[in-house]
Nucleic acid binder design. Structure first.
Lengths: 211, 211, 211, 211
DNA sequence: CATGAATGAGTCTTCATTCAT
DNA sequence: TATGAATGAAGACTCATTCAT
């Protein structure tokens, strides 16, 4: 393969990936506005300013776009999580936990559109779709469960059904963020929000009246 | 009106309400299997073994059935909740709380189909639908928030953003129950489940390492 | 057959025909308000305050009612027409013609509902229906054509294609009455209306400028 | 935009308008055969030999086609009418009138399908539909009324209620043409037909027996 | 690569008519 | 005779996907 060819191919690949991003951007906007199911391919191509056929040149189906968005989101969330370190010189465990929660809140708020899509779009329109979304949450709760197990081994987390509690943690986060993002209520700043979530998950709501 | 007529009318009313239940049952089954949006009226009438027109004789639209199911569910849940009493001779506060959680778990498990429908139904396809579902959850979280406020006034609940924490509680319950009901994992019995949920919501996951 | 039986039968027949009239009345009202096609059997039985099945006990179909109304209307119109008489002592031919037109106007205005139905409801929803309505108008134009022929033989009507002109007469009457009844414009009284129609049909619109 | 693109666009536009005409043609045929209301979209697409979706690609609804046909017809009719001129050197007033009637007859006969649709379509099934059709005839009778007024000011038309007489003229034309087109009776040629209609409308049916 | 016209299976809902009671 | 629950064929319209240009 000569260099001219090589260069041409690279540029082509680049153009292709730009186009892809353009479509993804449009979908993010459209889906978050009307919801995945209510958004038609017509909406998408209008927003992306491309022809109908072009859409199918970059994605095999409407659902494939959703998959890509899902993947993107998972990557971002996973990327923010830091393993709790007990190494000498590290921040306190609580501080590290708070950091994780805070960063997740940041990611979700900064990807408001995507987050709303994820939290609202539930299962039911097609089996494939169901499976993808389910898997996504399973992966998330898997990460949380791992953290809980680690915490237990470090004596930081009380004995509990880690699988079940992971779902609790995931569920509380989902519900709070969905309400926050869709209601637009920003009376609490991100710090406060992260703190409340942390407090709730770490300590619950109870004040032990004592013996 | 003579007695014969009276009797006929009564029987007619009864038959009518039986038919209605038959349709509701079919919808519960179908909706919980495929989801509300993915279920067509055709699915429903097949399951109910009735003619297309008969469906519309008992419900003005597909959504009306959903409304009815929603109402039924809310009634059941609301009916299980008991106000925490500190009157002399009452069970301990913790026991009363546990009772509430346990009864909710019971209701949800015993209405598996309905619960699954509620927990997974997508928003976004129909504004009316969205609104109904939203309102339903708002009512639920309102109940929880009221309980938290009461708890605070009784010195049982720590100071917190009750609205936000109510969403946390709701979210954790939703997620756990959805996973349990859809995965079919019954490794934990209902008592254990209620206990875990209680522990999580009351005490969080943390063991304070102390000073 | 004994007399008791006979009496019973008579009373039954009478009840039956009363019931029939009650239904016809309701149909007249309903059809004239919404039009035949837009009126459902449900509308009719509500208006008649009878059960669905009862309707089909007295009429084999919705269209059959329309036929009956049609017949009734034709009878009334035909009944108003008087043969023009040239016998000594009769009113003048013009006066007799005016009388006919005037009586038709009366009948149509006094059966406003029925008239509107007839004039508005056109063909197109079912072949049977088409045929009935067509026949009705054919009978009417037949009567008019007969009158024209008679007029010709009496030297009162100019030579013309009587069939075609009969349609013209019928058409002009239909259109004028439809507009009058549906617009509610009563700026002209019945006398004036009849006079204008007569003038138009007898003399046309033209003033011969002369030689 | 380069020339190749330009050419492509032009051809596309042309194909589009051809398709549109193909559908309009099919509708004309189908509607005139069964009537607008009785014709289903299924009938139309069968006749046009296109897919269901294609129909909705060119027209937003079944009624929209009707609107288009209506507009087309009105344009044709309005286009045939010539204002009566009394300028020196013009044809005689009678000849000009005859010309108008004759041309209308031509248009109606040459658009047989369309004419039949217009003349028989039922009102009452759809308010929008009713309104469109009504407006159409109001426009037509408006044109006629204007002509009558002009005639009066020129001393050609006798004093009369121009509005009412306009309806008479319209009605007579409608009825005659409907019968002619649907019965297929062509015993009279177009010249004779126009002459009869003219005579009827100008002079009526009467021979004044004189004093 | 890009286009957009064409497709057709699938959706909810209506309503004249029948029939067991 | 009267009832009204049940029927099911038919209707208009949507939209993800394909494919010839």
């Amino acid at each position: 393969m000569d260099e001219a060819q090589d260069g041409r191919k690279q540029r082509a690949t680049q153009r292709r990936s730009e186009r892809r991003l353009q479509i993804l951007d449009a979908c993010r906007k459209v889906f978050s506005l009307k919801g995945y199911h209510a958004s038609s391919v017509a909406d998408v191509i209008t927003a992306a300013n491309i022809a109908r056929g072009t859409f199918y040149l970059y994605f095999p189906s409407k659902r494939a776009v959703f998959d890509a968005l899902l993947e993107e989101m998972f990557g971002q969330i996973a990327g923010t999580l830091r393993r709790i370190s007990t190494a000498r010189g590290s921040d306190s465990v609580l501080e590290q936990m708070y950091g994780n929660v805070r960063r997740i809140v940041d990611v979700l708020e900064e990807n408001r559109d995507l987050t709303i899509i994820l939290l609202r779009e539930a299962v039911g329109l097609d089996a494939d779709f169901d499976h993808k979304l389910n898997t996504f949450y399973e992966r998330l709760s898997g990460v949380i469960e791992g953290a809980l197990r680690l915490g237990q081994s470090m004596g930081l987390v009380r004995p509990c059904d880690t699988r079940l509690v992971a779902y609790c943690v995931l569920g509380s986060l989902k519900e709070v963020m969905l309400r926050r993002l869709t209601s637009g209520d920003q009376s609490l700043d991100r710090d406060g929000l992260a703190q409340e979530i942390m407090d709730y998950n770490l300590r619950g709501v109870f004040i032990d009246p004592g013996p």
